[in-house]
Design a protein around this nucleic acid. Structure first.
Length: 962
RNA sequence: GGGCUCGUAGCUCAGUUGGUCAGAGCGCACCGCUGAUAACGGUGAGGUCGGAAGUUCGAAUCUUCCCGGGCCCA
């Protein structure tokens, strides 16, 4: 006989303790890249395309991020959400390709390149600058692509779509040609920032604001139609003036209206000017300041009456009293008084001189009021022949003086002063910039399309019904934007982009731009890329175009029977708004690459309601008559932990690379899946740390599950098949819970509710598995004979649970799921990502399980109380006597007493013969009973065995001592 | 200033049509286990549901106003 102490220790080696190669420590930062390599090596993305797809195609369409800079935390959210869509749809049985895209053209890149070039840019041809831009874009596509892959997104990174690729550009022109064919494209004037020095339009990013001295003038416009004032008792025999203020006198020749604030009070003042009695209209609030500036004493003027456009009670006086008109101070025309929201009382008189050809706000007002976009200033900054003869040929700076002098001489100048103000300058020439109306290309949202309705109406109608919005309020947002949007200005005066394929004729308003001519250029750009526009002649660009068969060919270019005169053609210098390029991706990617149209889902941040969503919707409606998407899913924006906007300067921006290095992709993805991403999302490193804690919990549950499958089965099932007689087993309960999880997770994935999946999985790991099931079956797994049917049944259940859990978590934690999958099925298993979601099965769980678990809760509570009051540390020192209530008596006879004891974590359970109304529990203190040296239970069967140990019957059997 | 939207325990979030709706998880504190151990289990504390008024027998839930965020415009 061995020594007792040795015997005690030796039982540990007789147990089936958990064992697995799946480590507790994830080491994601090192291991995730290896998983990526493995997927690449096995061609996972391509394999998925070839796999069977019982549900058919699910068309997800990726919106292109801008190829500038490294990805930020917003991209992380966006790309991970997209990847979860793609992976979950794939595992639901769809073919769901993911073609990533990049927006490559546009000002930010061109601007950056120009800055880098500095003075060198001056001697460069457009195509040379474009080459630099292309290189720049390529660099960032590569950088971002690498980062996105590092986030474990599964997409066709070998063949992404780039908006600067020739085939893409050609497709954009095809979309454009279709809109042209419908007569939706037109040319009109619009004010832009204009550099006189370089004779070019400038974007906001190319402006530098510097202080500048200008003459500001207070000008009197004589009212013509005084009806409104007459009703207010103003003497109409006395001249009445509107007083405006401006810092750009040179824009006065283009004045077409005066704007007032809708919700401000205006006074009519009686005043003497140069000895003459008159009335002057100025905003009440600023009148004192204005008169004081002109040196007029308060005693010299008085208010006669006052008015406002909008009454307090909301009635619109303006409409009741009709339009007020005034006479231009030095041009023979009258203009209306209109209201405009942007009019403030901070500077000036509260009456704003409005020249639609010389200001963006003025232009908007002009559109609304149907004013001309009149601009008498030419590209070189001089006035054209429509201006008064004393201004013609003079440049705008000279005109400032001339206009002021003229106003003074004609007694329209109330006051002038010199002011210093911040004024935009051309960042290259450092010269002051002007606003000047120029010819731009537009798409009309008002004209009827070939689908009989305007783009606006089509958009409103189809998004009202035929598109699903997640969340639903996206529909309202889209509607509001469609209702208020003006015609789309397509042209930009830049070089880094897709040229608008227009050719101008000898006269200013002659242009060759027909559906057929655009398609011809499109075909040639498909062959040569858009650089061709800058290198080739008009004739070369139009190769394949036959004006004879184009009824829309303009007569100045082609007359029947004669050869077209290509020498008349001059290439346009405009490029497309980049939004038109990305807004054509449904054609350039989905249709051109045969991905299916329309897409099932677009998924972007909520800023894209106005951006990509709307600007894809409009061209798609024009061409196809239907929206490019069936569903639109949006997420919110990242804010800091106090709910404030993220900003780099504020120091609260998080680097994606840092997050990946500190936490790994799966932890970042677990964090994403925990969010309600409809609205703002708070970000803080602490949240990633917490996500890491939760991740470890899930990982450890998987690890423990795996560790109890000591002999992986090749057939993937188990040696045990469940039958109806197992319905009351703990395993049947666990499998029933698994079914519920499968159902819930699949439904939530279906509705893009990743947070719900996250919660369900976490709860299942934490509660169902860790706290209840695995704790309950530990005893049989460890202590039963390895091949005991009871143990094998549990292992079969665990196998099924593990397999299902890995599949369910795979879209969220692709690396960890893969790691666990290989641990479960062996290294020869290909990939969990080629598998599909599990289906709920017909597990024969007894209907009484719900009640039984309620009873368990009650019993646990009592055991807990008893341990506290009687000072019992170890729950295995407890037993439980159950006195069944009437409703539970039958149920309790069906369940195994050992199972019940294991569920409560105690040594044994007995059922009393007595009866009560309500099931009652009595906790037994078993500390005076012998304890099995192997399983530590005091189950009543413990006695000395032939090996000298104190063992229970089960343990003796397991050791073959009986 | 306008359109859309959000504001529930320290944190992340649930709360159908107004009546067990004041909840869950994390975190925290305390306890247990030491055969899942840089793991595991149990127990507990925490909120006048952004503020005010109103409708109602009754409101986190409806109405109005206010405060504070976010996106897009202006």
């Amino acid at each position: 006989m061995a020594q007792p102490t040795q015997e005690k220790r030796s039982y540990r080696d007789t147990l089936n303790l958990p064992k697995t190669a799946f480590p507790m420590k994830a080491n994601l930062v090192q291991n995730e890249p290896a998983t990526l390599k493995r997927w690449a090596k096995q061609g996972l993305y391509q394999k998925l395309r070839q796999r069977e797809h019982p549900k058919g195609r699910y068309t997800f369409h990726d919106g292109p991020p801008y190829a500038n800079g490294a990805i930020h935390i917003g991209h992380l959210l966006n790309k991970v959400l997209k990847d979860m869509v793609v992976r979950s749809k794939t595992m639901a049985g769809y073919d769901c390709p993911y073609i990533p895209g990049w927006d490559c053209h546009g000002l930010p890149i061109e601007h950056k390149v120009m800055q880098e070039l500095g003075d060198k840019a001056k001697g460069m041809e457009p195509y040379q600058v474009r080459r630099k831009c292309k290189t720049y874009a390529e660099k960032f596509v590569k950088l971002q692509s690498g980062q996105m892959q590092r986030l474990l997104t599964l997409a066709d990174y070998d063949d992404p779509y780039l908006t600067m690729a020739p085939a893409y550009e050609a497709a954009v022109l095809e979309v454009f040609a279709d809109l042209v064919s419908q007569g939706l494209v037109y040319r009109a004037l619009k004010p832009v920032h204009w550099s006189i020095a370089n004779q070019t339009a400038l974007a906001d990013a190319e402006l530098e604001y510097e202080d500048r001295e200008d003459t500001s003038v207070y000008v009197l416009f004589e009212v013509v139609n005084k009806k409104y004032f007459q009703t207010r008792g103003v003497d109409t025999s006395v001249p009445l003036y509107l007083m405006i203020w401006t810092t750009t006198p040179w824009t006065l020749p283009a004045n077409l209206a005066v704007a007032i604030a809708p919700r401000a009070d205006y006074g009519v003042y009686r005043i003497k000017l140069k000895g003459k009695e008159c009335f002057v209209v100025v905003a009440l609030e600023v009148a004192g300041k204005v008169f004081a500036a002109a040196g007029i004493e308060p005693s010299s003027y008085s208010v006669v009456t006052h008015f406002r456009a909008d009454d307090e009670d909301g009635t619109d006086e303006w409409e009741r009293f009709g339009d007020i008109t005034y006479r231009h101070p030095f041009i023979d025309r009258t203009g209306p008084v209109v209201t405009a929201d942007y009019v403030t009382l901070e500077d000036g008189t509260g009456l704003v001189h409005t020249a639609p050809g010389h200001g963006v706000e003025d232009y908007q007002t002009g559109l609304r009021e149907k004013l001309d976009v009149y601009c008498p200033v030419q590209a070189d900054g001089t006035f054209d022949s429509t201006a008064p003869d004393w201004l013609q040929g003079k440049d705008v700076w000279k005109a400032n003086e001339l206009v002021v002098k003229h106003l003074h001489d004609s007694q329209h100048l109330f006051h002038q002063e010199t002011i210093t103000h911040s004024y935009p300058h051309d960042w290259r020439s450092k010269t002051p910039v002007i606003f000047r109306a120029t010819e731009q290309w537009f798409v009309s949202v008002e004209q009827p399309t070939k689908h009989n309705q305007s783009l606006r109406d089509l958009g409103l109608q189809q998004t009202a019904n035929d598109v699903r919005f997640y969340p639903e309020w996206g529909r309202n947002r889209m509607r509001g934007m469609l209702e208020s949007r003006p015609d789309w200005c397509l042209s930009r005066q830049r070089v880094w982009g897709l040229p608008i394929p227009a050719f101008y004729g000898p006269d200013k308003d002659q242009a060759l731009l027909t559906a057929a001519s655009v398609r011809a250029v499109s075909a040639n750009i498909r062959k040569h890329g858009s650089d061709y526009w800058f290198k080739a002649t008009p004739q070369e660009l139009l190769e394949g175009y036959d004006p004879a068969s184009d009824p829309a060919a303009p007569s100045w270019f082609y007359t029947k029977g004669l050869d077209p005169d290509y020498s008349k053609l001059q290439k346009a210098n405009d490029i497309f708004d980049v939004w038109f390029e990305s807004g054509s991706s449904w054609h350039a990617v989905l249709r051109q690459r045969d991905q299916g149209y329309p897409a099932d889902l677009y998924l972007e941040g909520s800023d894209q309601h106005r951006g990509w969503f709307q600007l894809s919707l409009l061209p798609a409606l024009g061409v196809t008559g239907q929206p490019p998407f069936r569903g639109v899913l949006t997420h919110g924006f990242m804010v800091d932990k106090d709910g404030r906007k993220m900003s780099k300067s504020g120091g609260n921006a998080l680097e994606v690379d840092t997050l990946l290095k500190d936490f790994g992709a799966d932890v970042c993805r677990w964090w994403v899946s925990s969010l309600n991403s409809d609205n703002d999302i708070k970000v803080d490193p602490e949240f990633f740390r917490l996500a890491g804690e939760e991740y470890r919990k899930v990982r450890n549950t998987l690890r423990f599950l795996l560790s109890n499958l000591d002999s992986p089965r090749k057939d993937g099932g188990g040696e045990y098949e469940f039958t109806d007689t197992d319905a009351t087993s703990i395993d049947a309960w666990a499998l029933g819970q698994l079914n519920a999880l499968i159902q819930q997770a699949r439904n939530s994935y279906e509705g893009f509710q990743y947070r719900k999946v996250h919660e369900a999985i976490f709860h299942f790991c934490n509660d169902t598995m860790s706290a209840i099931y695995l704790t309950a079956v530990k005893d049989r797994l460890y202590c039963d004979a390895p091949d005991s049917p009871r143990r094998r049944r549990t292992q079969a259940a665990i196998h099924r649970i593990t397999d299902a859990l890995i599949r369910l978590v795979a879209p969220i934690l692709p690396h960890t799921a893969e790691e666990a999958w290989l641990a479960l099925h062996g290294d020869e298993a290909e990939s969990v990502h080629l598998a599909v979601f599990p289906d709920p099965d017909a597990t024969p769980a007894d209907a009484a399980w719900d009640r039984l678990m309620e009873l368990r809760d009650q019993a646990m509570k009592q055991i807990e109380d008893a341990r506290a009051t009687r000072d019992i540390d170890n729950p295995l020192d407890c037993g439980l006597r159950i006195t069944p209530g009437q409703d539970d008596a039958e149920i309790l006879t069906r369940f195994d007493l050992v199972d019940l004891a294991d569920l409560c974590g105690i040594s044994r359970v007995e059922i009393s013969d007595a009866h009560t109304a309500q099931t009652a529990f009595e906790v037994l203190d078993l500390r005076d009973q012998p304890r099995c040296e192997r399983c530590w239970k005091r189950d009543g069967t413990v006695k000395p065995r032939s090996d000298g140990g104190l063992l229970s019957d089960r343990d003796a059997l397991a050791l073959s001592l009986v």
